[in-house]
Amino acid sequence: EVLEGRRGLKRVPVTEISQSYLGLSVFMNLDALNKMLEESPLVSGAHISYDDARTDALYKEIKRTPEISGIAIQSASLAKFRETVAKNIYIMTTVYIGLSLIIAFGVVYNSARIQLSERAREFASLRVLGFTRGEVSRVLLTELGLLVALSIPLGWLIGYGFAWAVIRGFENDLYRVPFIIENGTYATASFIVLASAAISAAIVRRRIDRLDMVRALKTRE
């Protein structure tokens, strides 16, 4: 649909679809466009490349040319855009990592504490039978490590699906965000979970070392 000049509807075949992440762009041969609109050759803009060492000379020539109404430096615009996006992403990532660290620590620690409370009598019995503190701790921490190891791949799958849903939810006519997950993302997520598990294990190990065997053995099943 032509909205300027000679308005009307035009039927144009689409020969190829290009991937674009900002706005809605359509590309067409200039001669074919002028013929379709029944207009004389007209240029509204141009893409040029120049030597950075001669930027000042370029600006002077542009100022001397009244036909040029303005200029946009793609490198400067792109750098500013990336700076703004990186700043926003950095803030969001910091918040998300902090929340994930708290949640991961809470889940792992609570799971270990529940197991310790339920099996305190069993651990006390092992200590009475001659098991060392390290051996008793190893029983619980091995189970905890196994659960963490099994949960990490499952977390990858859930996170992948959640990220895909978020990206699709943000898409609109103004911009689209490509769905890309790097291997470093999985490594970071795994490190957060493992770090939380290590901190929880250290706290639980200390509680096992301070376990009151007499009180635990008096507790009925």
Score class of each variant (00 low, 15 high):
E1G: 13
E1L: 04
V2K: 00
V2N: 03
L3K: 14
R6G: 08
R6L: 09
R7A: 04
L9Q: 00
V14K: 00
T15A: 14
E16R: 12
I17G: 10
S18W: 09
S18Y: 10
Q19A: 09
S20V: 09
S20E: 12
Y21C: 04
L24N: 12
M28C: 06
L30W: 05
L33Y: 08
L33T: 04
N34R: 13
N34M: 09
L37P: 00
E39T: 13
L42N: 07
L42D: 15
L42A: 10
V43L: 11
S44Y: 04
S44R: 07
G45W: 04
G45Q: 00
A46V: 11
S49N: 13
S49K: 12
D51G: 00
D52P: 06
D52W: 02
R54T: 01
T55Y: 14
T55I: 04
L58C: 03
R64N: 11
R64M: 08
P66Y: 01
E67I: 10
I68A: 02
I68P: 08
S69R: 05
G70N: 07
A72G: 04
Q74F: 15
Q74N: 15
S75P: 15
A76P: 04
A76L: 11
A76Y: 08
S77L: 13
L78V: 15
L78Y: 10
K80A: 08
F81Y: 09
R82M: 12
T84N: 07
A86I: 14
K87W: 03
K87G: 14
N88W: 11
N88S: 15
T93S: 09
Y96W: 03
I97R: 08
I97N: 14
L99V: 12
L99Y: 06
L101A: 08
F105T: 02
G106I: 15
G106M: 05
N110D: 14
A112Y: 14
L116C: 09
S117K: 13
R119G: 14
A120T: 08
F123P: 00
L126K: 15
L126R: 08
L126Q: 09
R127L: 06
V128A: 04
V128Q: 11
V128G: 05
T132Y: 06
G134K: 06
S137K: 12
V139F: 05
L140N: 02
L141Q: 03
E143G: 00
G145V: 05
V148R: 01
S151G: 07
I152Q: 01
I152S: 00
P153R: 03
G159V: 00
G159N: 06
Y160D: 03
G161W: 15
F162A: 14
A163K: 10
W164V: 10
A165Q: 15
E171I: 05
D173R: 07
D173L: 03
L174S: 03
P178M: 00
F179R: 10
I180N: 04
I181S: 01
E182V: 02
N183L: 15
A187V: 12
T188R: 15
S190A: 06
S190Q: 00
F191N: 08
A195C: 07
A197K: 12
A198P: 01
I199L: 07
S200E: 11
A201C: 05
A202G: 13
I203K: 01
I208L: 03
R210H: 14
R210V: 03
D212Q: 03
M213D: 02
V214E: 15
V214L: 06
A216D: 01
L217Q: 02
L217A: 06
R220A: 05
E221G: 09
